[in-house]
């Protein structure tokens, strides 16, 4: 085809329009499945970090200060709460965690939702070896800091920054959870502890 101005404009705009229409069609087709896939991911993460429950925590989710809370009940009794939390202190920036708390604030389980930490180093935070050490720990007594900073957490070797960020994410979830869901007398001491933790952090 000859490259006249008319030809070029016609060809480029017609092809662009056709492509846009095709893309729009595929978007509509895949919209449903994408939403389902996202929801399935949310459900599986919530289910993994909580003890047995029989309500629908996804429907009762609540957003507080950027974190999402999924309260879980079993036979009307509160059995725990999953918290979608995040940290921006990772080695490669932000990553997302899902933390499950029991009603008294004890950690039930933690899973990593989305992360882009270095493969083989920070990315190892999703290994059971690292994340299972938080199971059954209560932050009122457990020092959520890596051992290098005087805490109780075994950091991933050669990935102290990622380990610190992981703790930061859990701490954020714990503080907001205690503030909004648990009325407890030990609040004051916990608060003081967490601020001390933040002050002592070195990047």
């Amino acid at each position: 085809m000859e490259s006249t101005l008319k030809n070029m404009i016609l060809s480029l705009s017609l092809i662009s329009m056709a492509m846009a229409a095709g893309l729009g069609y595929v978007y509509v087709l895949t919209k449903g499945p994408i939403e389902e896939a996202d929801k399935a991911k949310e459900v599986s993460a919530v289910t993994e970090v909580l003890p047995h429950f029989d309500n629908d925590p996804i429907k009762q989710k609540k957003e507080i200060e950027g974190l999402t809370f999924y309260p879980a009940t079993n036979g009307g009794q509160l059995v725990g709460c999953a918290v979608k939390t995040y940290t921006t202190k990772g080695f490669s920036g932000r990553f997302d965690l899902m933390v499950g708390f029991k009603p008294d604030g004890t950690i039930h389980k933690v899973v990593v939702l989305e992360q882009k930490e270095t493969p083989g180093l920070g990315a190892k935070m999703n290994d059971p070896k690292f994340r299972d050490q938080f199971m059954g720990k209560n932050l009122a007594t457990y020092k959520l800091k890596v051992k290098k900073d005087g805490g109780d957490v075994d950091a991933i070797s050669a990935a102290t920054i990622s380990s610190r960020a992981f703790c930061d994410g859990i701490q954020k979830a714990y503080d907001l959870y205690m503030k909004n869901f648990v009325k407890s007398n030990s609040m004051a001491s916990v608060k003081a502890d967490s601020t001390a933790g933040k002050g002592g952090k070195h990047e």
């Binding site: 085809m1 490259s3 070029m8 060809s11 480029l12 092809i15 893309l23 595929v26």
Partner: peptide, 22 residues
């Protein structure tokens, strides 16, 4: 046969970008 030579790269990229998005 409907792609003028002078804008072929632009057209190709439009098509490729669409395929990638799909």
């Amino acid at each position: 046969n409907y792609i003028p030579d002078k804008v072929r790269i632009a057209v190709f990229i439009t098509i490729i970008a669409t395929c990638v998005s799909v």
